[in-house]
Every structure is written in C-alpha cells, then in structure tokens.
Design a protein around this nucleic acid. Structure first.
Lengths: 221, 221, 221, 221
DNA sequence: TATGAATGAGTTTTCATTCAT
DNA sequence: GATGAATGAAAACTCATTCAT
C-alpha cells in the first residue's frame, strides 16, 4: 500500500515514537524504583498503554532495560565525542564531562544508569546472556580513556596512575551517589557541586609532586 | 543454678552463634544478589536450616537486613574510632580508613553495604518506618567528619571544600564500585589499589594552590 | 463502533459474569468453611480458574468478601423495601421478611451472612479499615426499624420495648442458627418453621398485657 | 516416693491448677479471636508458659478447645440442674436461665461458646472425629427440653410449638449476638436486657390465643 | 495492532506440632 | 516436667509473560 518502500514513514515513525515513550517511562521508573522495583505495569500505565503492548516492542523486561541502557550509553558516548573533538584542554574536557553528566542527572534520564549498573538481578541476567557489563560499558570507558590519556601526554595528569583506574574513579564520580548527597540533602547548588567535583578530581589525578608519595609510612628522618 | 547471671548459659551462646551464622549468610547472599534477589530460602539453605527458623531470630526480611546493616555500621564505626584515637597524622588516618575498608571489603562482609544502600526497595521500606538512611548512616558520617575537620585544622586539607562534601566523596570511594573494577576485573593487587586511592583522595582534598582554581573557564591571557 | 456507550460491550458482560461466578463460589465456600477456612484456592478451583485470576477482579480476599457482603446486603435491603412498600399490615410485613429470609437461606446465598458476621478475623480487619460493621449493616437495620416503628404506631407492637432491641432480636432470628437446627437436623419443613418463627416473634413483641410483667419474682400471693 | 498413692495431691493439684489456667486463657482468647484467630502462642503467653507446655496437658489445639467446651457445657448443665430443682415456676425457671447465661456472658467465660459453635473450622474437625455437635450439645438441650416440657404441662407454654424448636429459639437467645448489640453498642444496662429478653421469649412461647393464628394469610371473610 | 484475561512460578510469612536437652 | 529450637505445610499475594480476540 505504501508507495515507496523507502518511505518507512508513517507507521514506522509512530512505532519509533511509541518506543521512545516506553523507553522514557522505563527510565523514569527505573531511576527511582530500581530494576526489581520496576514492574511492567508501572511502565505501561505511565505511557498509557497496556502491559502487553510493551512486548510488541521489547521481547522482555530484560531487553527493554538493555535497550534503554544501550541508548543511554550511546547518547553519553556521543556527548563525550563532541567534547573530545572540541578545542578544550584535557583538564577542561574532564570538567566538561563532569558538568555534562551532572546536568543530565538532574533530569532523571541519567539516574537510571546507576540503578541498572548496581542491580545484581539485572547484572546476573546479563551474565547469563554472556554479555558482560564490560562490553556494554566499553564505549564509555574507551572514550574516557582517550581523554585521560591525552591529558597524560600533555603532562596535565599523573602518568603513574593507570588510566583504567582513573577511568574507574571518574565513573564513580559520575554516579549519582555524591550528587544525591549534596544536592538533594545538603541543598548545595548544582553548579557549585560540579565545581568542587572537578577541582577535586583534577587535583587528585594531577602529576605527583615529590611530597605526595609519603603515604607509605616511613620513619621521619 | 548458675551463680552469676552474667553467664550466657550455653543456650544463649548457641542462639547468638546461630544468629551470627544467619547474619553472615544473609550478608553473603545480599552482597551478590542484592536485597530483592535475596530470598529467605537462599539464606536458610546456606545456613542449613529451614526458612521458618530464621523468623525465630528476626521478625522479617527487612529486620534481618536492618540488623545486618546496624552491625556493619557499628563495626565500621569502632574501627574508625580506633584510627581516630591513634597518634597518626590526619593524612595517615584517612589512609588507614581507606586501607581498613578495602581490607574488609575483600571478605564479602562489607560488600553488602553497597547492596543495601543502593536498593530502592529497601530504602523505601526504611522510609516507611520513618527511619531515614540519614540517621542510620549518621554515626559513620560523624566520625569521618571528625577526621576530616581535624585535617582541615592542621592545614592538611582544603578548608574551602565543605566537609560534608569531602565525607561524601570519601564514602563514595569506600563503595565497592572502584574496588570491583580494579581488583576483580583488572587484577590489580589490593594494596596497590589502596595506595593509589589514598594518594588520589588526599591530593584531591589538599589545600588549594593558586593554580588549582582555573576550572571556571577563563580567556587565555 | 457501538452507537451507544450504554452497550456493555460483551467483554464487559463477560467480565461481570466472571465476577458473579467468583462471588457465587466465594459465597458457597464461605458458607460452609467460614472466612478463615476459605482459601483463595478453594474459590478459584470451584470457578475453574487460577488463584491469580481472582485478583483480576478483587484486590484481596478481604475485598472479595466485602464485596460479597455488600451485594448481599443490598439485595436484602431491596427485598425489604418491596415489602415495606406493599399494602401489607405491619404484622404481615414482619412475616414476609422472615419468610423471604428463610426462603433465601435455603440457597446457600444467604448463609454466608452469618459466616462473615461471626468471624472475628474478618470483623477485626474491617475495624482496621475504619469501617464498622455498624455502617455496613446499617441499611438493613434502618429498614427493619422502619417496619417495626410502623407497627408500634399502629398499635401492633409493644411500644415499651426499644425498637433497636426488636431489630436485634429479629436479626438474630434471621440468622441461620435456628434454621440449621430445625430444617437440617430435625427435618421440619421450611414453611412450617417460618410459620412458627413468625408467630413466636410477633407474640414476643406484641403489646404487653398487664400479666406479662411479673417476670421480676414476686412472692406467691 | 509418694507416701500414699491415695494422695494425688501436691503434684497432681498443681497439674490441675495449671490445666485450669490454660483453659481459662484459652477461653478468653477464643472469646475474642475465634477458633482460627486463637494461636497456641496467645494462650501460652497469657498463662506465662511455653507453647510446648500446653501439649503436656492437651494433645492438640482441637483437644484443648474441646475440653474447654466440655467443661463449659458441664458447668452450664449444672446451673440448669440447680434451677430445675428449685421451687420456681416454669416461667421463672426460664427467666433464671436467661439471667444466668447473660450474667456469665459479661465475664468472657461464656462468650467462647458462640465462638466455638460458629467456627466451621472447628466444627469440621469435630465431624472428622465422628463427634457431632449434637452429642456434645445434647446435655444442654436435654435440660432445656425438660424445663420447657414442664412448662407445657403446667399450661404456661404453647403446646403446639415443638419443644425442640423452643429449645433452639432459647439457645439462639443465649448467643452473644443480641447481647453484644444491646449492651456493648447501645449501652443498655444488662439487667434491663435480661428483663426484655425474658418477657419477649415468654410471650413468644406463651399458649396461643385464637387471634395469634392469622399469620397464614387468609381472605378477610 | 493492541488489549484484557489468564496463569505459573515464586516470595514472605504464620502456625500447630515435635523433640532434644 | 518444661522449654527453646526447629520445621512442614499452607496461604495470600505479585508479576513477567502469553494468547485469543
């Protein structure tokens, strides 16, 4: 009936829109109820459709969340790409990444990252599928690695600390853990939190000064 | 018949031992299945008793986990107290805290902290009970605050950064997040992780040098 | 597509039919097992559906029974209304009420009234809901009160006895207690039981004759 | 060790006392929680002993309640015997029975009768044991029958109504149903309730006057 | 395509009853 | 004798998933 097979438009467009709505709803529920706490009914009623309709788009709860995760990761990766391609200095790039993450976290759209990444239920289902979180998370890690390595080369960051550890520390910072504490409970304005966090992280990974080392206890000479 | 009521009477001893076993099992399951993933059956079978027997010690799943949490917090608080009372410098104290936490985390005994603190299901049940996580977590926060404030006074730590934020950052570091990444997946030896983490955190909260500020983008002069 | 929204759309019809079937089954089980003895499985298997399917219609066992009770009360109330509006004399109305009740009681549809009203478990749950049995039972009591007050005004019934007591006595008579004894165990035909009961009650509440009083013991003259 | 086998005293006395305490506690719990609502723990803790200790006296919950029922029936039967043997007129005897029952009902000691007699769970267990309630209840019925038959012979009561029905009606009156309504909810003083009830019942079973009959609707001639 | 209906598997919790000490 | 500990069986309820319409 469609004139041009190349026009996936109408129906297809509606379908994708529906899918987006479902993903958005799922993200919201996920963000504040967690993977186990999220029921298909929650999502469906938020979109205003029936539970069964979700299965027209995603074969299972697991797949739905996985898709959401994938989309989130991709979006985040694209942002990091933009930042990477900008003319900013490595330090400024790190700051921009933190800023961007926390900006997004205010909208619940990013909060669910944590929800998913911390849910043993989801993670174990993932493992059953032979898909390590490692693979999924890889695009992000790779990009962060690139930024940090660039900083190492430019002499901005500590070359002694393995980049993988830096990546892990930065990821940990982007988790809503600190965010919730400070903004929601202490009432600190978001930009200020971002400022402090950036400074903290950059100082933490700055090239070591001679007097940074003495952490391993030595007798005062 | 016993002269001193202080004698825990064997029966009582056994009871406490059972209780410890249950708590331990619960901690293990919790650590790798999360709050929702942990079923009473899991715990029971791990201890080698029946589901119902658990209810002889704890009135509900919620209470069991709550008890576990309480015990964990108390143990941690005591360790921090010891460290605080030692003659170490503030920087050394912070390092000792990190070291201790990660040492404990290797045994799954501490891993469950995260499991619980990140479970929306449990947290919301807690809220229903009018017991904020804030109150529960308070003893820890207070102690960390003490250590960090001491360091501020001694000139070791940045006085511009609010202590509450530092506490939050330190707490975030003690979370098994980074730990899992580095030790379990990257295979880095634990002491090395501790070393890096301590240095990172201490550098991050060190008093600001003039050239630490430029994070707010300024035109190149 | 249906022209009139008033058309219950087949689906809806089926749904209501199912609901009726569930209620009926529940009534039966309730009548001979009591509230505590009735398990959702009992009801489900009697209808030929799964336990879970019941929850598609009623959110809990409590609600199911409550709905059943409500329906029963409403049906009974309507019957009493019809009787009240008839041209019968007060005495005849009372008789009609008794007759109607016992007629209905033969079908187990009414038997459950007693089951519910006598179940401490259910009653206490009701209290938790802040819904006194008083409120629920009120429509019935009100109607019986109307009939009896009418009889008092017409001089048919004893004006000295509080109507509330009369209502209570009549209610007690409608309880399947006596019914079970006489019909099921003694084998007395139902109409005869109704006859005796009506006469007994009407004589009992008839206006007092001077020589009815002497119940308080007096010395034989 | 006991000097005289004939002295079942000390130990035995204590045993019986313990048994009485258990029965009393069971009666109380039964009265306001019903058979299903009564847990062995409820009873035990009320007596101040352990659940297991109850089983030293009664082989099962069922037996415990059965014993309680038996004792209650026997006590009631004895009271009726006393009344029967007194020099009172039949009408006065009936009144005395009602008075006695309601007096007892104020103390919860009698309330449990109803609880038990209306519990399908208990009744069905009874049936399994091949012991009809009929047999158990028989001593009471027999005595009430005696009193009422005496009244029939003396011309005080309606000879047309079968005595078994009268017994059933009287039993129904002794049920706490009306009692609860009037005393607990309407606040009517107990003696007044007894007065009204006695008059009502006696009028109800009084010998029929010609004009009592017309209940069966006949065409006005 | 969308949905209401249906379900099986699983979860927490309760309780009468038994038994070693 | 008395008890604390232990348990098996049941029961209410939830939820992801399927399917006929």
């Amino acid at each position: 009936m469609t004139l041009h097979a190349a026009t996936p438009t109408l129906k297809e467009r509606q379908r994708q829109e529906r899918e987006r709505l479902i993903l958005r709803a799922a993200g919201e529920v996920l963000a504040d109820q967690g993977y186990d706490g999220m029921s298909m009914e929650d999502v469906a009623s938020r979109v205003g459709i029936s539970r069964a309709a979700i299965y027209l788009h995603f074969p299972s709860k697991e797949d739905l969340v996985f898709a959401l995760l994938g989309r989130g990761i991709q979006m985040f990766a694209e942002s990091v790409d933009d930042i990477f391609a900008s003319g900013l200095t490595p330090r400024e790039k790190v700051r921009a990444i933190i800023e961007h993450s926390y900006g997004g976290m205010a909208q619940p759209s990013f909060r669910f990252f944590n929800a998913v990444l911390q849910s043993p239920t989801f993670l174990s289902k993932m493992t059953e599928r032979q898909r390590t979180m490692r693979d999924v998370w890889n695009p992000i890690q790779q990009r962060l690695t690139d930024v940090l390595d660039e900083g190492k080369r430019s002499g901005d960051f500590d070359t002694e600390m393995p980049t993988s550890l830096m990546v892990s520390l930065l990821s940990g910072l982007l988790t809503p853990f600190t965010f919730k504490q400070m903004v929601e409970q202490e009432g600190m304005p978001l930009p200020e939190v971002v400022n402090f966090l950036s400074r903290y992280f950059l100082k933490g990974i700055a090239p070591s000064q001679p007097d940074d080392l003495p952490e391993t206890r030595r007798p005062a000479h």
